[in-house]
Write a protein that binds this DNA or RNA. Structure first.
Lengths: 131, 131, 131, 131
DNA sequence: GTGGTCTAGACCACT
DNA sequence: GTGGTCTAGACCACA
């Protein structure tokens, strides 16, 4: 399910965080589902267990997964995302940066919003934008 | 014009890249305008010249500025952004990540697109989305 | 009577220790009252008997309960808590830590003492502080 | 300044977090002060740099210190503690536990509140409780 | 079996 | 010089 890019600027543990978060958000994993153990995932991805562990700790901090001592790690019912204030702020900042980058690349507003629309749709489905 | 946040996850040289790019995109600087020399900017910002130099190299790589030997550094005509393919790809990837993050934070599609719309408008102004 | 939070940083056996101690302290259980057997409690809570056993060992160590061979386990008369010196020391240490945490969170002394007062009152009732 | 207890149940990195937080709260270190580098502190305490790093990352997450890339780590002006909601919740929970423990140890309400008063005073000084 | 902590030692990005 | 990431491998607590 998770595919790492070996020579990427984004650290491995962040790639795991992003991809696992994506799996949950897309519904591929649901609340209560067991995620692979640290050892399992590390041997699947051929990386060090500590790296997986770091990713899981970050995901737990964000309320995406929950660890049950001695039993394993599970997708949490993510009704209440953690660190919401900090994360929303970061989202806004990054969005601002991307808008600049888009215009710097010569994209028109229409082209940019079209990019977003297609991404949004693949996640939220066909809700009307008026939702 | 450029304000650095010492306490920030994004490196100083990237902050310079982003902010100078923003100045150009917003029209505060136009093609042909002279950009402060490495020494000038580094003393204005109280940072190491190497840091400014690194930023300028990146900006030149992206075709935002152009150094003319012996004359100085200038904003280049932004008709032909460089590395467009790579940068567009990166833009798409980051957008995809932010959409996931937004949904993970519990935002609705409407809320997310509203965040973007307000950012877009401050840059592209009131062009109709049909532009 | 005992409610476990599977998702919690505190181990299950400690949760049992704390909650049983709380029941005694609040008067819900009194000296001589029979405590469920290890098997009973483990099947009530759907957990491993070893976990309950570990909790009971700790409670006995602290003098909260007393096992009588062949008869069962009972709340002991809490006149002479065991390990009082060690436990009082630990209490002091943790209090010191919490005071730091409270101030670090920006609480005023008044706010902090108010937090404690409300907790104290629910346990000791309305004794005057002069008790 | 920082003294580790080798054979303690609380992990080394947490001891560092607590003690450094205490130094800040007590005014021994102030906003802007440089904290020892990861390598310095690790060699002072004779522990692994990674352990210090873990502590510093936690302290940064809580808004106690700030890292400046390539320059070092500094006490931040802690006007806005991070993760306040989560931490306040944890504080309340632990307080509740300590009250039970105090009564279980046979302390009277007066004795317990006296313990708190002396700790509070050493931190907040002689503000009236009515502050 | 699970995850958490710690060590030793390496490499890299940033300043 | 700084901190951040990753690996390899060890030990421990919890269930």
């Amino acid at each position: 399910m998770i595919r790492l890019q070996e020579h990427s600027a984004t650290p491995i543990y962040e790639q795991i965080v992003e991809q696992l978060k994506a799996l949950v958000v897309k519904g591929a994993m649901k609340a209560g589902d067991k995620v692979p153990s640290v050892r399992e995932l590390s041997s699947m991805l051929l990386i060090n267990p500590n790296t997986v562990s770091k990713a899981y700790q970050e995901l737990e901090r964000q309320g995406v997964i929950k660890t049950i001592r001695g039993k394993g790690t599970f997708v949490s019912s993510n009704e209440a995302p953690r660190m919401a204030a900090e994360r929303t702020e970061a989202l806004q900042r990054e969005l601002r940066r991307l808008v600049v980058e888009a215009k710097s690349l010569g994209l028109t507003r229409k082209q940019f919003e079209e990019m977003i629309r297609s991404e949004s749709q693949s996640l939220w489905g066909d809700e009307r934008a008026a939702d």
